[in-house]
Design a protein around this nucleic acid. Structure first.
Length: 351
DNA sequence: TCACTCCCACCTCATGGCTT
DNA sequence: AAGCCATGAGGTGGGAGTGA
């Protein structure tokens, strides 16, 4: 009887395939990640796999070496994506392998691959083990700052390239990623009331079919005495000649770094760093003190009312708070219940 | 109603370097 | 020195789902 020399190789490939199938079964309901995410996954997984070569516990230990559960699950997703890509490549190579040297090399690779697949599945089954660290929100960074901190920061940045983005972030609470998209600032007169106002039109970040507001508009009266409104009114595009202008940054990261640097310059004693998201927390705090909850959600670009909980509290807003004329968004805000009869009546706009 | 899990997308931070 | 940029590592936000 003749023995197939590639039989052990195919047996090994079958074992890998079984683990891959069980991994795929668990994640079949998941949406395919975006291209940028997959690139990040490949990079992250390469780092983790490289690190696992020098650690006794291997990949399992590397995956668990964090205090934050979301980091753990991100690592799982990254390693799974990368191993599945690698699996496809190995299977294609298996189909082409004919000679003994290639077989030996592929056997070696499949052994390593199987070991990693098993460690990944084991980590998935066990779940996140380390002691969870309590999440800390950026809203705590607002404690101890002067009431006029946004205006102070804007003044500090006055001659830099981020002055206007800081002003827009202060007035809208938009995310750095939304400033990167570009925020349209326009001045109009309401034909019905004759009221002169400035409107900020924001294209939302973090928007999916069930998540986030694709567009939102925040309006302020031109006669609003708030110092930040007085500053925005000084700009040329608030004249009749140039009614609309886009405020845009090239890099959200660089914006945040600059905000942090300027703030630490102004308040060197302040323990928590002041970052771009602090504008968002302060804006939410102002709104919670001034208006209803759903307006806060619309202004923050949330689709669910639940999410606004993580932002600034009404107590952090107040005396120097902003008071917009209107906050409108593309979609209604879902309330805490899933019962559609209890959903709030939205103020919505055309997309 | 609330706390918690899970996962994707995005943000923060440290560090080093370049230009003015 | 100030102002700004680039990048890697790791943490947070946002929303759905679930179970007590």
């Amino acid at each position: 009887m003749r023995v197939d020399p590639q039989a052990p190789l195919h047996q090994l490939a079958d074992e890998c395939q079984k683990v891959v199938s069980s991994l795929q079964k668990k994640s079949e309901k998941r949406e395919a990640p975006h291209k940028r995410t997959t690139q990040e996954y490949l990079r992250l997984a390469a780092t983790l796999i490289k690190r696992s070569l020098y650690i006794p516990g291997g990949l399992s230990e590397v995956l668990q070496a964090t205090e934050c559960s979301s980091t753990f699950y991100k690592r799982l997703a990254a390693v799974q994506y990368t191993l599945l890509q690698h699996h496809e490549m190995l299977m294609a190579r298996l189909a082409e392998t004919t000679d003994a040297i290639q077989s030996r090399h592929l056997t070696h690779q499949l052994n390593f691959h199987l070991k990693r697949l098993m460690q990944l599945r084991e980590s998935q089954d066990i779940g996140f083990l380390p002691t969870r660290r309590k999440r800390h929100s950026k809203r705590q960074a607002l404690r101890g700052l002067p009431a006029s901190w946004r205006h102070d920061l804007y003044k500090r940045a006055d001659h830099g390239k981020y002055a206007l983005p800081i002003l827009v972030a202060s007035l809208t609470g938009c995310r750095p990623a939304e400033l990167q998209h570009g925020v349209a600032v326009c001045r109009e007169i309401d034909p019905a009331t004759g009221e002169d106002f400035i409107a900020f039109c924001i294209r939302g970040a973090k928007v999916k079919s069930e998540q986030g507001q694709p567009w939102r508009i925040i309006k302020y009266s031109v006669s609003d005495p708030h110092p930040l409104i007085r500053e925005i009114c000084k700009f040329a595009y608030c004249s009749d000649d140039v009614p609309i202008q886009e405020v845009k940054i090239e890099s959200a990261v660089n914006f945040t770094v600059e905000v942090r640097r300027l703030a630490s310059n102004l308040w060197p004693q302040h323990k928590q760093s002041v970052t771009a998201y602090c504008f968002r927390h302060q804006w939410a705090a102002d709104m919670k003190a001034f208006t209803d909850g759903d307006s806060v959600s619309r202004g923050l670009g949330h689709a669910s009312a639940k999410t606004r909980r993580t932002y600034g509290t009404a107590g952090q807003g107040g005396k120097d708070g902003l008071t917009p004329l209107a906050i409108v968004a593309t979609n209604p805000v879902r309330t805490f219940t899933t019962d559609p009869r209890r959903q709030s009546v939205p103020e919505s706009i055309e997309p």
